[in-house]
Design a protein around this nucleic acid. Sequence first.
RNA 1: CGCGGGAUAGAGCAGUCCGGAAGCUCGUCGGGCUCAUAACCCGAAGGUCACAGGUUCAAAUCCUGUUCCCGCAACCA
Length: 533
Amino acid sequence: MTKRNVTICVSWPYANNNLHIGYIASSLSGDILARYHRMVGDDVIMVSGTDSHGTKPVLKAKKEGVTPKDIVDRYHKNFIEALDKFNFSFDKFSITYDEYHKQKCMDIFKKLYDNGYLYEKQLRRPYCEKCGKFVADTEIEITCPECGRRTKADNCDCGHVPTEADLEGATCLVCGGKTSQKQDKVLVFKLTAFKDVLTKLVKDNENVWRANSLNETKKYLADLRDRDFSRDLDWGVKIPVEGYENKVVWVWWEALLGYLTDTMKLGEEKGFDWRKFWKTDVEPNVKKIIYMVHAKDNIVFHSMFLPAMLEGLHDNFVINNTMVSAEYLMANNAKISKSSSGTSHEALDWANNYNTDSLRYHFAANGPETKDANFTFELFQTANNTEVVNKFGNLINRTLKFKGLETLPSGKLDETIKAEVEKTYDEVAKFIENIEFKKASERAMELVSFANKYYDENKPWVLAKENIEEFNNVIYSCAYVIANLSNIFEPFMPNASAKLREFLNLNKTPEWKPISIEGGIKLDKVEPLFSRI
RNA sequence: CGCGGGAUAGAGCAGUCCGGAAGCUCGUCGGGCUCAUAACCCGAAGGUCACAGGUUCAAAUCCUGUUCCCGCAACCA
């Protein structure tokens, strides 16, 4: 296959709470893609980082009497630790308060301004005299005129959306004082200027994107509006326009550019030209794939906001991308973010208590790919004990720990096994490239079932006593399957795959193609890959 | 009536675009095997495809309406 340049953009977790398993479930697709594309020989980068700006860290910092940086550093550390334990193979995982990111963003925003895509709008906003600044809706509290309860001003639990008038005399949550409506201005991004480009983008991907990405984007296009670009806040990326010294860029606009700034930084560090991943005029003959991996609440930002910004630079950016939009992971049928039950939904807790390969497999096979997926300990336990331990782990054990077997015998490779292995590579690859990870992981597991069946039908425990040559052929053929499972499962269960390579003295760098195996390997390193829970 | 995704055996899901004998994994029940972490293999039972209409020789699939879950729409991100 000809080499492609593949960029995998995994959405940026917000530094407001510890990483939860929903993020792992919806982002895993990115790591599966990254590992697979590296194995087929593509030039791959996978990037993301911590989204550190916005009002929430600021509020939390005030409450705890620390700086916003202290808050986001705490969560950034948690993100890195959790993602590392789940074996996410990021080439870069940065943080948006990084000076490099901020500077590059400001350069880009200046260009968008110069190109005429940012304009000023007047409006009235709540202003706190005591704090001496305009405050965000989440920083003030009002009495809801609909239900009479106290609520933050962005929305009320009763469903009422406060109007400009409702905000008059709101309470500032920072200082406790009253706010008043004052004349303010906001910088607006001219999203409507990109209607044709975005319409074409959707049309070009009619058979590529999932239904949620396509329809959600079409809906926005039907009623396309310009979007606010600035925010009244001092924690964020400064706006390189005169008169906006006290405002910052709304986090979305700069966080999305993190994919680009990560790539630029990576290029400087590793010595490659970042443009080969993002520009049509660099390595023009190499196919470029840009995957956008995120959950459904992020759709339009990736399908519209980012492409519009890139197009607005008038600089041959690759606009076309492959949207990989997941639905939501529910925990015990409740929204993870709002759940307050005793069970932890923190990614790090799960990683510390259970086998992350097993969790990865479970999320690939039963994750929120096209609709919300429920996640419970019981469902995971079943998947772990039946699919992962009984089928996968047991195949390894019954083959490589066959009673009395100390070295792998040489033998003749069974033709049906050889053919099935080749077929599995092709079909799993097809599913992965088609962003169907549920099917891909299940198809991979079918090879395990195929081998277990082959094992049973050929009864090596009988052959061991009656026909040692045939016994050797069967065990050798099963070991051949196991060697290839170490490749095929690399995107899904990287730890187990690495251990299999160690058991069988295989090359440490896996490739997406059948590998042969030699007899005579000492089997003393073999141990159970997974344990029951 | 703001908009998008979803509702299919006890559980989790595929099938819906392009209508043509209801499938997969797990669980349950029965059988086989004894190499293996009591794992593995074979077989069976189990579903008015959310609900109500309609189109058709034929509907899980197309059309209309309804209910429920999730998300988006606002200076939350």
